[in-house]
Amino acid sequence: MNILVTGGAGFIGSALCRHLVADPRNRVVNIDKLTYAGNLASLRQIENFPNYRFIQADICNDALVAEILRAENIDHVIHLAAETHVDRSIDGPDAFVETNIVGTFRLLQASLAYWRELPANAVADFRFHHVSTDEVFGDLPFDTSLFTEDTPYAPSSPYSASKAASDHLVRAWHQTFGLPIVVTNCSNNYGPFHFPEKLIPLVILNALEEKPLPVYGNGGNVRDWLHVEDHARALALVATKGKVGENYNIGGRAERTNLSVVETICDLLDRKRPRRNGASYRSLIKFVSDRPGHDRRYAMDAAKIERELGWSPQESFDEGLARTIDWYLENAWWWKPIRDGSYAGERLGRLVAAQ
């Protein structure tokens, strides 16, 4: 298959590209605008593969996207290009509306026109796979409830609202125009090549640099953690085997409070890279004012994808987190230029909303 991955230089997109090109039957074309979170260094191991190509492009440029679809004879579009950080969406929502909503609209228009031009024998094989988040469902209480594919949308942040809007656009293009789509909603990802603003890499790298480990509120917010390589496997499976018009939840079945995640990282680093002063990294934990609209809990019911497509997470959270820490300890070449640049290793999303 010829697969177009949008946002393939990002965290999840690069993991997906690495996974897809490992199968020589796939040819992957990666388009990415290369904003702050897009990093070609994450693709270094596959950049010279014969079945991989990178094109710097903005999904809002529908004319260019249309040219790429035709020139590369694309069979599947897997759409990950998005602004993704909740904290940044609070500080500056404009880019989230432009990329996540307008960009998805323009990509849908280009894909629809391309699909309508395909020869009869190729029309049925085309798929537009939209990758979304559990955050569109809003807040869960602290009980046994889970997000299912039928959970009503109730986004809380500018980020989740923009993703909810893009989800609705994708489904509308299927219902109104017949575009063959699938939609996936995933829980919190973690793993190698994760941009240092996000909680797990932020805590790892701040700890290594003896900086405070900022935790919002009392750290009691709960997230379901999914290893990015498990997610990449799921995305590849849904793109090829998922039923047209359906959506699939992808979760790791690994609920943890934010404080528990931070404390586990500290304990692992105590063993793997002890501090010079002999103290525990836990002493660096600093509770900061909570993020506005901070949802209490997310948890995914992944029974549908497990039952219908045979997918299940292969990585336990404890083992996956330990491997993730090892990766950051061994790969300063990737993260150090980011930390040494304009990014200061702080948590965002509190100041603007308070003004």
Rank of each mutant, 00 (worst) to 15 (best):
M1T: 09
N2C: 01
G7K: 06
G7D: 05
G7T: 02
G8R: 01
A9L: 10
L20M: 09
V21Y: 03
D23N: 15
L34M: 14
A37I: 06
A41E: 14
I46N: 03
E47M: 14
R53K: 15
R53Y: 05
L64S: 00
E67L: 14
A71G: 13
E72K: 03
D75S: 13
H76T: 13
I78R: 03
H79M: 05
A82K: 00
A82Q: 00
V86S: 02
D91T: 05
D91E: 15
D94W: 12
A95P: 02
V97D: 01
S111H: 04
L112E: 06
R116A: 02
E117G: 04
P119M: 05
A122T: 00
A124S: 15
D125M: 07
H129E: 12
H129N: 12
H130G: 03
V136E: 04
F137Y: 14
G138W: 08
L140F: 06
F142D: 14
S145Q: 12
L146T: 10
F147L: 07
P152N: 11
Y153R: 10
S156E: 10
P158E: 07
P158A: 07
K163A: 07
K163V: 10
A165Q: 09
S166R: 07
V170F: 07
T176R: 12
G178E: 04
V183E: 08
N185F: 11
C186V: 00
S187Y: 03
E197F: 00
K198E: 05
I200S: 05
P201R: 02
L202S: 03
V203G: 00
E209V: 00
L213I: 08
Y216A: 09
G217T: 02
G217A: 14
G219A: 07
G220E: 13
G220P: 01
R223T: 04
D224W: 08
W225V: 00
D230N: 11
A234H: 10
A236G: 15
L237R: 15
A239C: 12
T240P: 03
N249L: 15
I250K: 02
G251F: 04
G252F: 14
G252V: 13
R253Q: 14
A254P: 04
T257A: 10
N258Y: 06
S260C: 11
S260R: 13
V261C: 11
E263N: 09
R273N: 08
R275G: 05
A279R: 15
Y281Q: 06
R282T: 09
F287D: 02
S289A: 13
R297W: 09
A302C: 14
R307L: 12
E315Y: 06
F317E: 09
F317M: 12
E319R: 12
A322Q: 11
Y328T: 04
N331W: 11
A332P: 02
A332D: 15
W333Y: 07
I338W: 08
R339H: 07
L348E: 11
G349N: 10
A353K: 01
Q355D: 03
